[in-house]
């Protein structure tokens, strides 16, 4: 239902500890509209800098648009502290294991779907390394009804870039993708490059997957990040957010 100025609106936003991959307790930031629903849900997979202010704002943004939204702290097993200190430690350690992230994302989806106000639909959204993780989580589980990969670097990987924590290039799971994919990218990005996005697109076509890619001119990595003046591109970010919400509205419902 379109918003009217005489509508009641409210949200709850708080830290919640839930069972993650392997049943480990993980910290999450959880925001949802007040009311009985039914609400669709979205799992937000944070970027390399960590479980930071931008991701908590984005989680509330989804809640304000009618979604129960949850952002797990993928780094919470590594340490607790200032987000940038924790992020620096993870950066030095070469990231967190892909398997663990997929497990955490699927666990968040189970948590959301089990709520009385869930409409049963769950999407996954991520930017930067979180875009790559969102794609992996969508391909490697049956937990998601739609996935938004925003400039996820490392979907296409060279063999020499594979590590113990990242043993398989996400593109190799494309055949298993069970849901529609939205991809937003910048023409000037180097991770992913437009050439890597084209390789990913070919793989999606080859397997007959439903996808919608937009390559924005004049944008590089992180063009939604209003707190990073060199990266932020207002025009592309406004259009990109519209595409994200239109995509999730189509495949999950809400608004």
């Amino acid at each position: 239902m379109p918003y009217r100025t005489d509508h009641y609106e409210g949200m709850l936003a708080e830290t919640a500890v839930i069972p993650g991959a392997d049943g480990d307790p993980i910290y999450t930031y959880f925001a949802r509209p007040l009311g009985t629903g039914p609400f669709p849900s979205v799992v937000l997979i944070h970027h390399m800098p960590g479980w930071d202010t931008w991701y908590k704002e984005a989680t509330r943004k989804f809640a304000s648009r009618g979604y129960a939204a949850i952002a797990p702290d993928l780094y919470c097993r590594v340490a607790q502290g200032a987000p940038e200190d924790v992020g620096a430690k993870v950066r030095a350690e070469g990231g967190v294991p892909d398997d663990q992230v997929v497990g955490d994302a699927a666990a968040c989806a189970r948590f959301l779907r089990s709520q009385t106000y869930s409409n049963g639909k769950v999407g996954v959204f991520g930017t930067c390394s979180g875009g790559r993780h969102a794609y992996l989580a969508a391909c490697r589980s049956t937990a998601f009804d739609a996935v938004a990969d925003l400039w996820g670097g490392g979907v296409v990987m060279r063999p020499e870039d594979l590590t113990e924590k990242r043993p398989v290039a996400p593109i190799d799971y494309t055949k298993d993708l069970p849901c529609p994919l939205l991809g937003l990218f910048g023409e000037d990005d180097r991770a992913p490059t437009p050439e890597q996005v084209a390789i990913h697109e070919e793989e999606l076509k080859k397997h007959g997957k439903q996808y919608e890619f937009t390559m924005y001119p004049g944008a590089a990595h992180g063009f939604f990040y209003h707190d990073r003046p060199a990266a932020y591109r207002a025009e592309q970010a406004v259009d990109g957010w519209q595409k994200v919400f239109a995509f999730f509205r189509q495949h999950l419902g809400a608004e």
Binding site: A92, H221, A230
Partner: peptide, 18 residues
């Protein structure tokens, strides 16, 4: 010391020598 060329937290660059 951990030396990385990756996303920084503060300097307004996509990648920095951290």
């Amino acid at each position: 010391a951990h030396v990385t060329y990756d996303h920084p937290f503060h300097v307004d660059l996509e990648h920095a020598l951290n």
